[in-house]
Design a protein around this nucleic acid. Structure first.
Length: 802
DNA sequence: CTTGACCGGGG
DNA sequence: GTGTACGGTCAAG
C-alpha cells in the first residue's frame, strides 16, 4: 500500500537482537499511521591511522568483538569503505554496521583501541535521528510511504516501509489541547483543558459552571484526564512547564494509585526522557510540547520580559494576562469552599492562555523541526546550540562530510578555561534625557560578518591557500578560496529568507499562507543567528574559538566605523551596543536615509545597516562612579510606548512598590515631566511613611531550596520560614517564600515574616532599601538626592534640567 | 578576582 | 541507552 503522511514522532524498538525504527505519522485524511522500518541498521565510522585497507584487515582478523569482560558478541553486519570529507580534506574511512543501536558505543570502543584506528566518528547520534537524517525525513513535510500493511495495535494503520518519496506540501490542522493542573497539599485538585471550542475543568469540588466536570476523587480525575486525551486523540498536548511540574505531579499521583498514564498513541505509558538537567514527558506518537523549555532555550533572547513566567510571556506575546489570584487566595478558596467559581475560572484561564500562546509558538516549533529535521518533541526541548548542531549534522550528511565528535568533558573544561574573548562594542552614554533619537542597527550583524569574511572552522589556517583573510591582531587566517561550511549555510538561509519575505508581500496579512511563510522566515532567522554563538559554545562539535573571536572582532570594527562616520556627518552619538547606534541631530528624520545609504554603499555584500526606530525621548543613567551606565536605558516612542532595558523593575526580589514606583518615575521622566517624577517618588515614600501602603505591595519573593533549618547562613526568607514553621504553618520544601519586612525585631532577618503573618511593615526598610535605590537610579541624574526624597513635606527639586 | 551554591518555570 | 547537556547571579572565600 501507499500512504501520504507526515512524521509526528519517531523512536525504535529492539526485539530478539533486531532493531525496528518506528515513525508515527499522520496521513492526509487525518488517520494515524505507524511506519516501521526493519532494514535500517546502526553504524559508525572508523578513521584509519594510515591505511584503510590495513584497518579493514585488522578488523576482519580481530572478529568477533565482544563486550568488555568477554560477554555478548557485538555483531558486525557490514564493513564498507567510504570516502568522506573531513574539515577541508578527503579521507578514506570504514563504515561499520551492527545489529542494535546499543552495540554502537561498545563496538566503537573496541575498534578505537586498535592501533590501526586513529579515531571513530558518528557513534553518538541517537538512532531515530540517524534514521531521519539518512532517509532525508523531516517532520512537517509530506512523504509517500510504500510497503506492506500490518495491523498496528491501537493505531489506525501500520505500514512496513520499503520506499519513501517526498511529496508536495499539503496542509493539515492538528488537534491541540492545552492543560494545566492545580495542586493543593500535593494533591491534584483541578485539571483544566482548553482546545478549539473546548473547555473543561475536572475537579473534585462541586462548582456550578458549564465547563466544570465534578469527579469523585483525585484518582478519577487523573483517569478522566487520560480518557479525554485518548477520546479526542489529541495530536498536540501542550502546557507550561509541564515536563518539570504537571507531569511530574501526575506521575507521582498515579503511582500512588497504581494507575497508568497510558497517554501514548498506542496506549504506551508516559515516560520521562532524561536529558541532563531536564526531563521531558514523552507520549509516544503524540506531540507533547512544553512551551517553557522552548521559550527558555530559543525565544528568550528576543523577549523583553526578564522573567519567563506564563503571565509575563502572555502579556508580551498576546497582550493578555492571567486572572489576578494569589496563591493565598486560592488556598483560602479551596479550604473554605468559597468563591470556587472564580478559582475555576482562574484555572481554566491558565490553559486558555497557554493554548493561545501555543497557537503562536507550536507552528514555530514544527517549522524548526522541518528545517533541523528533529522531531517536535526534541525541537521544543533542545537548547539553541543543540538545535543548530542537529541542523549542521543534517547539512554535513548531505555534503558527505564527516560529523565532528562531541568534545569530552575535559576538552570542554579546557575550552572554558581559555576564558572569554571580547564581545560586542558598547558605547558609554552620558547620563541624561535625550530628545528625538534615531536607532539604527546592522541586520544580522554576526551572520553577515561571517559570510563577508568567510569565517568558518573549515576555512581556518588552510596551508595551501591563495587568498587569505588575516586580522593583524590574531595569528591565524581564513582562506577565501572556496566558501566555508558555515558561510554557505548562512548565505543559503539568508537568501531563502529574502525570498520568503518577498513571497509574503504577495499574501494577505492574516492569511494562513502568510502565517506559514512568516514562521518559515522566523525559523530560518533563528538558525542563521545561532551559528556565531554555536562556534563559541564549549560543547560544540564544530567549535572554533578563532572563528567566533574573529566574528566579534569584525563586528566591533563595523560598528566603530559607523560611529566614526556618523560623527563626521555631524551626528551626536547617544549610545551604541554591539550592532546598534543611537543617534541625534537636528532634522534627523530627513537626513538619516542619506546617512544609511552612505554607510551601506561601503559595506561588503550581504551586510546592511538598517533604520530601527524613532524615539521621542531616551533616558540614560549612570553607575555609582558617575560614568554612564551601559545596557540600562529607557525609550519612549511617539505613541507613548516605553521600552525599558536593564532596570531592576521586573525582578522578583524587589517589592511591587519599588518596581511600580520605578516604572512610574521612568514614564514621567520620558514624558519630560521630571518634577512629576520626583513627586511620584515622593508620594510613594510618604505613603510608606504614613503606613498607607497595602501589605501586598511589600511582598518579596525568594525561593527556599531546602528545609529552613538546614541553612547555615541567615537570610530574611529563611528566618521568615522558620518563624512561620514554629507557628505551626506548613512550609513545603522548595517553596517560594513570600515575605514582608515588619517593624518588629532587631535585624532585617528578625523582622522578616511571611506574608500571611505580616501585620506591620518597616517603612524605613522599604524606603531606604527598596523604593529609594530603585527611583534614585533615575532621579539622581536630575540632581535629586536621597535627602530630598526622604525630606518632610514637598519641595521642588533643584535638578539641572529645570 | 575566583570559586561554589543557587536558581529558573510550576502550585 | 549511538545516555546525561545550561547560563547567569550573588555571596563567600
Amino acid at each position: 500500500m501507499e500512504r501520504k503522511a507526515q512524521v509526528v514522532d519517531a523512536d525504535y524498538e529492539t526485539e530478539g537482537g533486531e532493531v525496528t525504527v518506528r515513525a508515527f505519522c499522520k496521513t492526509e485524511e487525518g488517520k494515524d499511521l505507524l511506519v516501521k522500518d526493519e532494514n535500517f541498521k546502526p553504524y559508525f565510522y572508523a578513521v584509519p591511522e594510515r591505511d584503510v585497507e590495513a584497518l579493514r584487515e585488522k578488523v576482519e582478523e580481530e572478529r568477533p568483538f565482544r563486550e568488555e569482560g568477554g560477554g555478548e558478541e557485538l555483531q558486525i553486519l557490514e564493513v564498507e569503505e567510504k570516502e568522506l570529507i573531513d574539515g577541508n580534506e578527503e579521507v578514506q574511512v570504514l563504515k561499520v554496521s551492527t545489529s542494535v543501536p546499543a552495540n554502537v558505543p561498545k563496538l566503537k570502543n573496541r575498534l578505537w583501541d586498535l592501533e590501526e584506528t586513529e579515531e571513530c566518528r558518528e557513534f553518538d547520534i541517537p538512532f531515530y535521528r540517524r534514521y531521519m537524517v539518512d532517509k532525508g525525513l523531516r517532520p512537517n513535510k509530506w512523504y509517500s510511504f510504500s510497503g506492506d500493511s500490518f495491523k498496528a495495535r491501537g493505531i489506525d494503520e501500520g505500514l512496513k516501509v520499503e520506499s519513501i518519496e517526498e511529496r508536495e506540501q499539503g496542509s493539515f490542522e492538528w488537534d491541540m489541547l492545552a492543560f494545566d493542573l492545580e495542586v493543593y497539599e500535593d494533591e491534584v485538585i483541578m485539571a483544566s483543558l482548553y482546545g478549539k471550542e473546548y473547555e473543561k475543568l475536572l475537579t473534585t469540588a462541586e462548582i456550578e459552571e458549564e465547563y466544570v466536570e465534578t469527579v469523585d476523587s483525585e484518582k478519577e480525575l487523573i483517569q478522566r484526564f487520560v480518557e479525554i486525551i485518548e477520546e479526542r486523540n489529541t495530536d498536540v498536548l501542550t502546557g507550561y512547564n509541564t515536563d518539570e511540574y504537571d507531569f511530574t505531579v501526575l506521575r507521582e499521583r498515579s503511582n500512588e494509585y497504581g494507575i497508568e498514564l497510558s497517554l501514548g498513541r498506542d496506549g504506551e505509558r508516559m515516560k520521562f526522557n532524561r536529558r541532563g538537567r531536564f526531563k521531558g514527558a514523552r507520549l509516544k506518537g503524540r506531540m507533547h510540547l512544553d512551551l517553557y523549555p522552548f521559550i527558555q532555550h530559543v525565544l528568550a533572547p528576543g523577549i523583553d520580559s526578564e522573567t519567563l513566567d506564563l503571565d509575563s510571556i502572555a502579556e508580551e506575546m498576546l497582550g493578555r494576562n492571567k486572572d489576578e489570584m494569589s496563591w493565598e487566595e486560592m488556598k483560602k478558596s479551596w479550604e473554605n469552599r468559597e468563591g470556587l467559581a472564580e478559582f475555576a475560572r482562574y484555572a481554566l484561564k491558565d490553559s486558555e492562555l497557554t493554548f493561545e500562546l501555543a497557537e503562536e509558538i507550536v507552528p514555530q516549533i514544527t517549522e524548526l523541526s522541518r528545517i533541523t529535521g528533529l522531531i517536535p518533541f526534541d525541537t521544543c526541548r533542545l537548547t539553541y546550540g543543540q538545535l543548530t548542531e542537529n541542523f549542521l549534522i543534517r547539512e554535513a550528511h548531505l555534503r558527505d562530510m564527516l560529523v565532528e565528535n562531541r568534545p569530552s568533558q575535559d576538552s570542554r573544561r579546557k575550552r572554558q578555561r581559555q576564558g572569554a574573548y571580547s564581545g560586542g562594542f558598547v558605547y558609554t552614554p552620558d547620563e541624561g534625557l535625550y530628545e528625538d533619537i534615531v536607532t539604527l542597527d546592522f541586520r544580522s550583524l554576526y551572520p553577515t560578518v561571517m559570510v563577508a569574511h568567510n569565517l568558518s572552522p573549515d576555512t581556518l589556517n588552510i596551508e595551501e591557500c591563495e587568498e587569505e583573510f588575516e586580522i593583524e591582531k590574531f595569528d591565524y587566517s581564513f582562506c577565501q578560496d572556496g566558501q566555508g561550511f558555515f558561510p554557505e549555510l548562512i548565505e543559503n538561509l539568508v537568501q531563502d529568507r529574502y525570498e520568503i519575505k518577498s513571497e509574503m508581500r504577495e499574501e494577505e496579512k492574516d492569511s494562513a499562507e502568510y502565517k506559514a511563510l512568516d514562521n518559515e522566515q522566523q525559523a530560518k532567522k533563528i538558525l542563521a543567528n545561532s551559528f556565531y554563538g554555536y562556534l563559541g559554545y564549549n560543547g560544540a562539535r564544530w567549535y572554533s574559538r578563532e572563528a567566533a573571536e574573529a566574528t566579534t572582532y569584525m563586528g566591533r570594527e563595523y560598528i566603530e566605523e559607523t560611529i566614526e562616520m556618523a560623527e563626521e556627518d555631524g551626528y551626536e552619538i547617544v549610545y551604541g551596543d554591539t550592532d546598534s547606534v543611537f543617534l541625534k541631530k537636528d532634522n534627523i528624520k530627513q537626513d538619516i536615509d542619506g546617512f544609511l545609504e552612505k554607510v551601506n554603499s561601503e559595506l561588503p555584500k550581504f551586510m546592511e545597516l538598517e533604520f530601527e526606530g524613532f524615539f521621542k525621548r531616551g533616558f540614560f543613567t549612570s553607575k555609582d562612579s558617575g560614568e554612564g551606565a551601559k545596557k540600562k536605558y529607557a525609550l519612549i516612542d511617539e505613541e507613548g510606548k516605553m521600552k525599558i532595558t536593564g532596570f531592576e523593575q521586573v525582578r522578583r526580589d524587589w517589592s511591587p512598590i519599588a518596581k511600580r514606583t520605578q516604572k512610574e518615575v521612568l514614564r514621567k521622566v520620558l514624558e519630560n515631566k521630571v518634577d512629576r517624577a520626583f513627586e511620584v517618588a515622593k508620594d510613594n515614600v510618604e505613603a510608606l511613611k504614613d503606613g498607607e501602603v497595602p501589605i501586598e505591595e511589600l511582598k518579596i519573593y525568594t525561593t527556599l531550596t531546602k528545609p529552613p533549618e538546614e541553612y547555615d547562613s541567615t537570610s530574611p526568607h529563611v528566618e521568615a520560614a522558620k518563624k512561620a514553621k514554629k507557628r505551626g504553618k506548613e512550609i513545603p520544601e522548595e517553596s517560594t517564600i513570600t515575605y514582608v519586612i515588619t517593624s518588629a525585631g532587631g535585624s532585617i532577618s528578625d523582622q522578616a515574616e511571611i506574608l500571611e503573618y505580616a501585620e506591620s511593615y518597616d517603612a524605613d526598610y522599604y524606603i531606604e532599601n527598596q523604593v529609594i535605590p530603585a527611583v534614585l537610579r533615575v532621579l539622581k541624574v536630575f540632581g535629586y538626592t536621597e535627602g530630598q526624597l526622604k525630606g518632610k513635606g514637598r519641595q521642588s527639586g533643584l535638578g539641572r534640567f529645570q
